[in-house]
Simulated assay, not measured.
Amino acid sequence: MSSSITLQKLAELVGGDLAVGAPEAVITGLNSIVDAGPGDITFLGNTRYLSALKTTRAAAALVPADLDGIEAPAGLALIRVANPTFAFSSVIRWFGPPSLEFAPGVHSTAVVASSVVFDAQTVSIGPHVVVEDGVTLGEGTILHAGVYIGRGARLGADCVVHANTVIKDRCVIGNRVIIHSGTVIGTDGFGYELVKGRHQKIEQVGIVQIDDDVEIGSCSTIDRARFGRTWIGEGTKIDNLVQIAHNCVVGKHCIIVAQVGVSGSTRLGDNVTLGGQVGVVGHLELGDGVMVLAKSAVTKSLPAAGAYVGYPARPLMEGRKMMALPARIPDLIDRLRELEKKVAALEGGGAKA
């Protein structure tokens, strides 16, 4: 953790241009636009916060390089960068706590089978970890306390598996994969057949394959395939509390937000985004670049890139219109009653005549 930095050094740290402010001025902390105070640096990651920037008490702010006409308080230093949100990560690393270091080696309470292949000079195996027969661990991989690795599983280099995570038999994990606490990789898929009035289990003998640079949040589950593989593509990021069912294929660089459920044998293309609490029916295909907004239900394949919303999910504008219709029902009922009264009055007048 560092206590201070000059504006000039800070601009160099984030790869930006000090557009306003004295290079020798000192920054001593960081905070949000709303909560920042004297000596703090903040950032403008979204133009919806432009009004907050006008009243911030921060000493400096990272702002988009392509944003003109910024109205800011007198004395607020501005550092222009290509991507303020991403650049602010460097600021966090400067002022934040130091990264925890995990010494290579095997903790005395860990249980590691004799057939496990790993380099004890680079791999860190924490307290109460269990690593079963036939496992391979790549260089620099860290297993935190209480992790379980099943028979024949393979983990690549520089993976981080957080406490109490389970990776079951024969699953294949790529390089630089991060799996957060409580997640289970490779549990049986949910497969049953109704035979003579009883649900009979269908054996699930496939694997889960997770490619390089994937990150999976806490308490998520990715089921093994019935046969073949459930496959998570390179660079995909999965939030907490997500369920990916058996034989699903998730493409590269997808974003899957919390409480999403994807049913079995569904295929997601590359760069697909599923918002919070989206549900996807099984055996569907979502094309590259599909974005499904929060709380939507996908009941049929969506091959074309674009945004979808609703229950069932429809193209964005159509879906929004359908979602707005129920709010008009009380007004429509009132209008219908008025029409009924007018019709009744006309019919009554006609009868008297």
Results as ranks from 00 to 15, higher is better:
Met1Asp: 14
Ser2Gln: 14
Ser4Gln: 15
Lys9Gln: 15
Leu10Cys: 07
Glu12Tyr: 07
Asp17Leu: 08
Gly21Ala: 04
Pro23His: 04
Pro23Ile: 08
Thr28Lys: 11
Asn31Tyr: 04
Gly37Phe: 11
Gly39Cys: 13
Gly39Met: 13
Gly39Gln: 12
Asp40His: 14
Ile41Tyr: 00
Leu53Trp: 07
Ala58Arg: 07
Ala61Asp: 02
Ala65Phe: 05
Ile70Gly: 01
Pro73Asp: 08
Leu76Thr: 08
Ile79Cys: 06
Asn83Glu: 13
Ala87Gly: 09
Phe88Lys: 09
Ser90Gly: 14
Ser90Ile: 00
Arg93Ser: 13
Trp94Tyr: 15
Phe95Val: 12
Pro97Phe: 14
Leu100Ile: 12
Pro104Ile: 11
Ser108Glu: 15
Ser108Arg: 13
Ala110Val: 05
Ser114Thr: 13
Val123Tyr: 06
Ser124Val: 10
Gly126Ser: 10
Val129Met: 07
Val130Phe: 09
Val131Trp: 03
Asp133Trp: 00
Asp133Ile: 00
Gly134Met: 11
Glu139Asn: 14
Gly152Ala: 00
Gly156Gln: 08
Gly156Ser: 09
Asn164Arg: 04
Val172Ile: 15
Ile173Val: 14
Arg176Thr: 08
Gly182Cys: 09
Thr183Asp: 10
Phe190His: 10
Phe190Lys: 11
Phe190Ile: 12
Tyr192Cys: 09
Gln200Ile: 13
Gln204Pro: 06
Ile207Glu: 05
Ile210Glu: 02
Asp212Arg: 05
Val214Leu: 05
Ile216Glu: 07
Gly217Ala: 03
Ser220Met: 01
Ile222Gln: 05
Arg224Phe: 10
Phe227Ala: 11
Arg229Ile: 01
Trp231Lys: 02
Ile232Leu: 12
Ile232His: 06
Thr236Val: 03
Asn240Thr: 07
Leu241Trp: 01
Val242Glu: 09
Val242His: 08
Cys248Leu: 10
Val249Ser: 04
His253Trp: 10
His253Thr: 06
Ile256Gly: 04
Ala258Arg: 01
Ala258Thr: 13
Ser263Lys: 00
Ser265Asn: 02
Thr266Glu: 00
Gly276His: 01
Val278Met: 07
Val281Pro: 00
His283Tyr: 08
Leu286Val: 11
Asp288Met: 03
Leu293Ile: 00
Ala297Phe: 00
Ala305Lys: 12
Ala305Asp: 03
Gly306Ser: 07
Tyr308Cys: 05
Val309Tyr: 03
Gly310Met: 11
Pro312Phe: 10
Ala313Tyr: 01
Arg314Met: 14
Leu316Cys: 06
Gly319Arg: 02
Gly319Thr: 09
Arg320Trp: 12
Lys321Glu: 12
Pro326Glu: 12
Arg337Pro: 01
Val343Phe: 04
Glu347Val: 03
Gly349Tyr: 01
Gly350Tyr: 14
